[in-house]
Structure formats: C-alpha cells, structure tokens
C-alpha cells in the first residue's frame, strides 16, 4: 500500500498549521515524522488518519482519494494510536484491545476477533494483563495496551503520534523494535511522529522533517538528519557521531 500526501493544507481558524505539504511513503517502511513542538506533526497524522478533513489538498491511498473510501473500509486500512489516551474505569485490557476490532464486528465477537486480540496481546507482551482494568495499569503498560488495540485492528498502515512518550528507556526501544518487526515482516506501513532523533536514526527507513508546517527534508535518516538540519529546524547545536553500535546525534546547546 502507498500513502501519498498531496499539497495538504490545514488551518485552525486563520492560523495555517500545514502549508502545501507533500510526501509519499509505502508498505514495508517505517517513516519517522520529526519536527519541533507545534510544527504540525500531530495535525498531519490526524489528517492522514481521516480524523480531520483537509482544508486543502488531499490524501491518496494507492492513488485513490481517501475521501472517496467508505469509513468502514478505511477503518480496516489505517490504524491510529493517539498521543493522549482516553479510557474508562471498569474496562478490562481484553475489552479495550477488542475495541480495535470495531470495523469487523456488528454485535457478537467471532473467533477471528479473539484470535486477532490474542496475537496483539502477545506481540506487545501483555497477555498476563488481559483481565486487569486499564485504569489500574502503569502509564507504560497502558500505552502498550493502546498499541495492541491498533494491532488488533489489523490495518495495512499504522499511524503513531509519539508512541513512546510515556515509556521508559527499555520500553521505548522494545516498542519501536516490535513495531519495526511488524512492519518489515507483514509488509505493513507505518508513520510515527517522534521526538527522539536517535530513535529515528535507529528504527526509521525514511525520515520526514517538518518545520513550521512545511517539509524541510524527506529521505533516508542518515541523509536528512545532519548537524545543519538539526540547527535549522530545532535551533540546537549538535554533532553526528558514528559508533560501532550505530549513528547518533549528540546535541549540546541551543544555537543563537
């Protein structure tokens, strides 16, 4: 599957959040969406997820305008994990992950639905939490539950809005590596808004760098993430270092 963002414009009132943004990504690739706070990452993700209608331009799924795809069909194609989670008391982890099956269910739950939930729970290593109430979990456990919900949705494309924001160091790496596995093995697609440049360097196949609602650069992580780009987009002095364990960006002070 291929997702094409074409001249996308998005506004909140008179304030332009995204200005004629265009890029393409496809199945089998982890695409990291990078940029400072307020650069329009969340808005871009929400527009692709069909949560916000575009103010201008369009989103193409396999060269088909997403506005022409029915809601139920689109719900099976694109899954979304938000930055902030809503949940209710007295809802078990199992019931929460089952919500991801909404596009496939009318009233009763099929064996296939339960199988998808089971696979999602074990992919995120949270089988043991199935009976627990979501409000009793730690922030990190909860975040993995909501990622499992998107996995149970079984979409061709995943959209993540800062999936690692409330995870500790180990779970950040674990979650991204699990998702990278899913994308590469199942040939799904994934766009993830990230803050951590080093996570992007390690796990992304493509980086889209956003600055004030426009695309600053789009390409391979090592090509896009240079000391100059970090200075221009984030206003931070940094250096790129090569180690045996990989490539890292060490940032040390704000540039003036």
């Amino acid at each position: 599957m291929k997702i094409t963002v074409e001249n996308l414009t998005q506004k909140y009132g008179s304030h332009t959040v995204l200005d004629e943004v265009s890029f393409t990504t496809e199945s089998g690739k982890v695409t990291a969406l990078l940029g400072p706070n307020g650069s329009g990452k969340s808005t871009l993700i929400k527009t692709i997820a069909d949560i916000l209608p575009p103010a201008g331009g369009r989103i193409l799924v396999n060269d088909r305008d997403i506005a022409e795809v029915s809601k139920s069909e689109r719900a099976k194609m694109i899954g979304y994990v938000p930055q902030y989670f809503h949940y209710t008391s007295f809802t078990s982890v199992l019931d929460t992950v089952l919500i991801g099956r909404r596009p496939y269910m009318s009233w009763s739950v099929s064996d296939e639905d339960l199988e998808a939930v089971d696979a999602a729970l074990s992919t995120m290593h949270i089988e043991d939490l199935a009976d627990r109430y979501v409000n009793e979990l730690s922030g990190g456990q909860r975040q993995r539950v909501f990622i499992a919900r998107a996995l149970a949705q079984n979409p061709e494309f995943f959209l993540f809005d800062e999936p690692t924001s409330s995870l500790d160091l180990r779970h950040q790496l674990e979650t991204l590596s699990v998702m990278q596995d899913v994308v590469h093995k199942n040939n799904s697609g994934m766009i993830a808004a990230l803050h951590d440049l080093n996570l992007a360097l390690r796990y992304a196949d493509q980086v889209v760098l956003v600055k004030e609602g426009t695309i600053y650069a789009d390409g391979k992580p090592e090509d896009v993430l240079t000391a100059d780009a970090v200075r221009d987009v984030y206003g931070v002095e940094s250096e790129v270092v090569e180690k045996e364990t990989g490539r890292f960006i060490l940032s040390y002070e704000p540039s003036y």
């Binding site: 069909d50 809601k71 979304y80």
Partner: peptide, 8 residues
C-alpha cells in the same frame, strides 16, 4: 479521535 479512526 480513535472512534473516528475506527469508522464512527
């Protein structure tokens, strides 16, 4: 947002 994404 999640409900909209799930087709509602």
């Amino acid at each position: 947002d999640v409900a909209r994404n799930l087709g509602i």
